[in-house]
Design a binder for these strands. Sequence first.
DNA 1: CATGGGATTGACT
DNA 2: GTCAATCCCATGC
Length: 194
Amino acid sequence: MTADRAFFERPVLDVARDLVGWTVRHGETAGVIVETEAYHESEPACHAFVGVTPRTQTLFGPPGMAYVYRSYGIHALLNAVCEPVGVGAAVLIRALEPVDGLELMRERRGLERPEDLCSGPGKLTHALGIGLELNATDLLGTGPVLLEPPGEDAAVRELLAGERIGITKATELPWRFCASGSRSVSRPWPAGVR
DNA sequence: CATGGGATTGACT
DNA sequence: GTCAATCCCATGC
């Protein structure tokens, strides 16, 4: 698995699954992805559902770019744009296990426990210092935020799939993916799913 | 131009 | 468990 444009040009569900285990790096801070969600223009929970607007044009642009937007007027949320140009789709990065720059993360978040630093989509952007100004920057090496593939020796972790969190539309789609057993996921797994 | 809602979080009962 | 904070932007008049 390499960090090239073709990886992100594939169906967004495949990319969402495959991104678990990758590393997000910004400056001296970095973490391993343990939770993702897929969003696609064909379903109403996706911002791209409404078509191309000033807000969503990044989603329809080249794959491998960052889509960063403000949520509830407070938080910045980080996505990786997927599928070919003209198709609006992205993977929401929902949680990380901190790897580098733990002290800087603690400083920014005002917390100590590693499993609390990046255990949510708004938390991880805060911990890594990712803001709206990074929208539409490249994630493949020429931009400030990097997505790095797992090493050859990386432990293979079991993947769980379930329903997405915090949305009111198309809630039935099992488009959320978590690394099994991670303590850094954003929320406990819904009852009944295993 | 006014309005309403949201891919969340942290504080509080 | 509940709830407010806060602001961009899509929508509708």
